[in-house]
Amino acid sequence: MNLVQLFLAVVMFGSLFSVLTLSLNLQYARGGMINFGTVAYFAAGAYAYAIVTQEPPSGLDQYLVGLHGPWWAGFLAAGVASMAFAVLTGWPTLRLRGEYLALTTFAFAEMLHSLLVNERRIGNGTVGLANVERPDPGSLGLPDAWAYAGAAFLLMLATALVFRRLLASPYGRAIDAVRDDETAAEAIGKDIARLRFEVFVISAVPIGFAGALYAMITTLVSPDLFTAEVTFFVWIALVLGGERTILGAVLGTMALVGFQELVRAFPFESVRAAEIAAAGEDIVTGILFILILRWQPFEAMVKRRAAA
């Protein structure tokens, strides 16, 4: 793998997962909600895109619905599906707080995963949907990898801008108020339950879009791609970048993706060596994660800057 490919992979997957990190940032750092089921909204988007654009089932296919729609319809459907899943899961769970919320969202994600594995009529079960349709950027005169890296980057930029605009508005200050002191926020007439629910649902939409883009890039959706590891990955990226800043969330994700791609770019002589490298990747990621949480260098940096 040469440097250009590495760079493209980092921009593509880094931007894509940054969308997830940004949404998580909105939910956790601003909304005070711990969502441990991020992957579910991502999966909902990817599957919605695949189902809308897929040709009707034929041969050995076990899925029931393939609408063979245009890509933009699939993309919109992905946002809607993710939002719908957020409404469905947010409604009963958002009255729970802290770790109870973390556990229930985690549970919902696992339920969706188990449903995708077992219910073959949705997307062929464990086999997944292969050859997902995607727009051909050749007509624009761009190679595929460049075009999709660009698309991911644009999606990230759009998400960051919308969230920034939202949070800078009076609405954003109301969200902060709810996080910092619910009683006080309620006393000045903010509907806490409603605000929390809205933040939860709004932040799910870009995750769904990211899911659709992910399906286009990999041209495959299968339950294996959407395990709890994605959730943990995004959490690690968020912590790595330091909470509460948009730039931090993006940089953290890019750094983590870059690190992973570097490890993967190494050629390995044997399966065992690759296995050890993969394990080493987990170990280093885990240790980094613990060290950053332990000493919180980014928080300290922000404080120092504020003091100066």
């Binding site: 912590v239 990747e281 987990d282 990621t285 885990g286 240790i287 994660f289 949480l293 332990r294």
Partner: peptide, 27 residues
């Protein structure tokens, strides 16, 4: 040493610990 940072941070930290342990076992 992290107890003062609160249960949410500890919960997330334990994910890191799980990563390290799983990685070591895998290796």
């Amino acid at each position: 040493p992290m107890r003062r940072l609160g249960p949410a941070v500890l919960l997330i930290t334990s994910v890191g610990v799980a990563y390290v342990m799983a990685g070591v076992m895998h290796a």
